[in-house]
């Protein structure tokens, strides 16, 4: 069957078998391998992508079900050479070691901050509670997301001018 979707701002049309899972469509057909394929059982959350702005586990969604919808993967987070504050936060606060869970963690963080720009640490922990990190013990991930919340303009020097410009970019 033929499906179409907007992925990271690009409209794509593709022929898929109905049984193809979104994670495999993204990785194998679109070759966007930033989305990781982990437990395959809806537990680990490394395959999280945003569907119409909401995090979903792409191993448990059919590509066919996304026909007509909008998807954001980790490749769509940065704006050109400018990292999303969440990506910057993971660098600043060492939010990753092996990096396997990172794409899913960052997308969930982005959706959380879009919904709630100033989350409490407990709200951050709840938001990522469907995702597993076996390296960091989560503390640095929580700090990374807090960093992003505190720096909505990313790593730019915090003058009024550049901040407002950056915010427009991420709006």
């Amino acid at each position: 069957m033929q499906i179409s979707m907007t992925i990271n701002g690009t409209f794509v049309t593709h022929e898929v078998e109905p049984r193809v899972l979104l994670v495999h469509f993204i990785r194998d057909d679109l070759r966007l391998t930033g989305t990781h394929w982990g437990c395959d059982t809806t537990n680990c959350g490394t395959c999280v992508v945003l569907m119409d702005g909401q995090p979903v586990k792409s191993c448990t969604v059919l590509a066919a079900m996304v026909d007509g919808h909008t998807i954001t993967t980790v490749e769509g987070l940065a704006n050109g050479a400018t990292l999303d504050p969440v990506q910057q936060g993971f660098m600043e606060e060492h939010g990753l070691q092996c990096g396997f869970c990172t794409p899913g963690m960052m997308l969930t963080a982005r959706a959380l901050l879009d919904h709630n720009p100033h989350p409490e640490p407990l709200q951050i922990r709840e938001a990522i509670s469907g995702q597993i990190c076996r390296c960091t013990g989560y503390a640095t991930i929580v700090r990374s997301i807090q960093w992003a919340a505190e720096h909505p303009a990313g790593a730019a020097p915090e003058t009024t001018t550049s901040e407002s410009t950056e915010q427009e970019v991420h709006a």
Partner: peptide, 9 residues
């Protein structure tokens, strides 16, 4: 029930 991401669906 499950986790926040599963609850979205």
């Amino acid at each position: 029930i499950a986790d926040p991401i599963v609850r979205n669906r």
